[in-house]
């Protein structure tokens, strides 16, 4: 589903964010991307979302080299990828419902069909009762769940999350992870960047570890107790 071949990214100014990273995520696979701040987690996700360009190597998504995608096709490519941001990136000038509606509006969905899907997504994250509220009135955990509903509402094949639990207390963070596992169970390929080792090591999923831009560990069956091999 997602394949990195020898990918390097150097920012203008010389900082090397990623150095020769190679890995492959299968269809329906769920993986955590971990490492300290500045290890290159966000950069790796940005490369998949095509908000940054790589300097070397190639990235294949569903067998297509996304770095050769013409600029006008980039929006259509992005629609197939749901993204959950640490700061959720919700719009506070509209209701929860309208925030989740956004991806469907962009795709030109029929209003009734869109409304049905928005409610289904909000129901899934347990916020159906809050659809009319402005997201600014919600708690941090609820805001993040609205962000997740928006990321999954058009049923993407891939879901990326950049520190989705970064601003949440452990209990809420665990709830979010349970949600992600549920989406994974219906076949969505997931890549979740998180430095919250205590949380993600409890979940039995593949773990990719970055250190100073290099992929230093790729554990397919991490133990429940620790990260050391």
């Amino acid at each position: 589903m997602i394949r990195f071949d020898d990918v390097s990214k150097r920012y203008p100014g010389g900082h090397e964010a990623l150095k020769q990273v190679s890995f492959e995520l299968e269809k329906g696979e769920m993986a955590f991307l971990t490492g300290r701040s500045g290890a290159g987690k966000s950069t790796l996700l940005k490369l998949i979302m095509l908000t940054e360009d790589l300097n070397q190597g190639q990235i294949l998504v569903s067998g297509r080299n996304i770095n050769r995608l013409p600029a006008r096709q980039v929006p259509f490519y992005r629609r197939r990828i749901g993204v959950v941001f640490q700061d959720h990136q919700l719009l506070f000038d509209r209701s929860v419902f309208d925030n989740v509606m956004l991806p469907l509006q962009i795709e030109g969905y029929d209003k009734h069909e869109a409304a049905r899907r928005v409610r289904a997504a909000l129901d899934k994250v347990g916020l159906l009762a809050r659809e009319k509220l402005n997201p600014v009135t919600l708690s941090g955990g609820e805001q993040q769940r609205v962000g997740i509903a928006r990321a999954v509402v058009n049923r993407p094949q891939i879901l990326l999350a950049d520190e989705p639990t970064g601003n949440l207390d452990p209990e809420l963070a665990a709830e979010i992870m349970v949600l992600f596992e549920q989406f994974n169970q219906v076949g969505v390929c997931m890549l979740i960047a998180s430095h919250d080792l205590s949380l993600i090591t409890r979940l039995k999923h593949r773990m990719l570890t970055l250190e100073q831009g290099r992929l230093i560990k790729d554990e397919h069956q991490p133990s429940r107790t620790g990260t050391s091999p």
């Binding site: 979302m49 908000t51 006008r72 929006p75 259509f76 490519y77 992005r78 629609r79 990828i81 993204v83 990136q89 919700l90 719009l91 000038d93 956004l102 991806p103 962009i106 795709e107 928006r150």
Partner: peptide
Amino acid sequence: EAEIRVMNLIGATRAF
């Protein structure tokens, strides 16, 4: 700006 940035991230075309 915030709205434009989000729209761009979730796959809105420039025309949209």
